[in-house]
C-alpha cells in the first residue's frame, strides 16, 4: 500500500473527467487500497480518483468513526435522487474550507464492487451527500462550484497564499522583547 498525493484546488487536474473502468483487476484493487489508506490518513470520509490524479472512475468512502466500514465504488452512477438537504461540507482537495451545500437527501446508486460484481444501494444523509460529492469529483466538479463566484475566488486566493507561504521557508525567529 502506498499513500498518494492529493491534488489541491485550484489545480486544473481536478477538472479532468474520469473514464469508466473496463476491467476490475488487481491494479484497480491496488488503486482502491492506496486510496483508502490515503483517505484514512488525511483523514477524510471520501476520496475520488481524480483527487489523486488517476483517471479511472472509482471512489472510496468510509463514514464510520472507527474506520471500519470502507465502501469501494467502481463506475458509480446515481439512478435516482430525492429530498433536499443542506450540509456543511469539507474536501481533502480544499483544505481548511467548510461551506454549506444543498444536495439531494436520498440517492440510489449503482456501481461495481471491488470484485467487479454489480451492486445497487440506497443511501441517505451524510452517506448520500458524500456519494454525490465524490461522483462530482469524477466529473471534474468541486463543492466550491456550488458557491458564489466571489466566495470561490476568495477561497482560491486563500489557498494560493497558503501554498506560497508553505514554500517560502521563513526562518523561525525567537521573540526578542
Amino acid at each position: 500500500m502506498a499513500r498518494l498525493n492529493i491534488l489541491c484546488f485550484p489545480d486544473p487536474r481536478l477538472r479532468n473527467r474520469a473514464r469508466p473502468v473496463e476491467q476490475v483487476d488487481d491494479s484497480v484493487r491496488q488503486l482502491l487500497d492506496d486510496m483508502l489508506e490515503t483517505m484514512y490518513e488525511a483523514p477524510g470520509i471520501g476520496l475520488a480518483s481524480t483527487q489523486v490524479n488517476d483517471s479511472r472512475r472509482v471512489v472510496v468512502i468510509d463514514i464510520s468513526e472507527n474506520h471500519d466500514a470502507p465502501l469501494c465504488l467502481i463506475n458509480p452512477e446515481i439512478l435516482e435522487r430525492s429530498g433536499e438537504e443542506e450540509m456543511e461540507e469539507g474536501c481533502l482537495s480544499v483544505p481548511g474550507v467548510y461551506e454549506t451545500v444543498r444536495r439531494a437527501d436520498q440517492v440510489r446508486v449503482q456501481a461495481l464492487d471491488r470484485e467487479g460484481n454489480p451492486l445497487e444501494m440506497a443511501a441517505e444523509g451524510l452517506l448520500a451527500v458524500c456519494i454525490q460529492h465524490e461522483i462530482d469529483h469524477l466529473d471534474g466538479k468541486l463543492f466550491v462550484d456550488y458557491l458564489s463566484n466571489l466566495k470561490r475566488q476568495r477561497i482560491r486566493k486563500k489557498l494560493e497564499k497558503e501554498r506560497r507561504q508553505k514554500t517560502t521557508n521563513e526562518p523561525v525567529r525567537q521573540p526578542v522583547i
Binding site: 477524510g44 470520509i45 461540507e89 469539507g90 467548510y98 451527500v129 465524490e134
Partner: peptide
C-alpha cells in the same frame, strides 16, 4: 470529502 462538524473556529 472531509467531515465537518459545523463548528468551525
Amino acid at each position: 470529502m472531509k467531515r465537518s462538524h459545523a463548528r468551525r473556529g
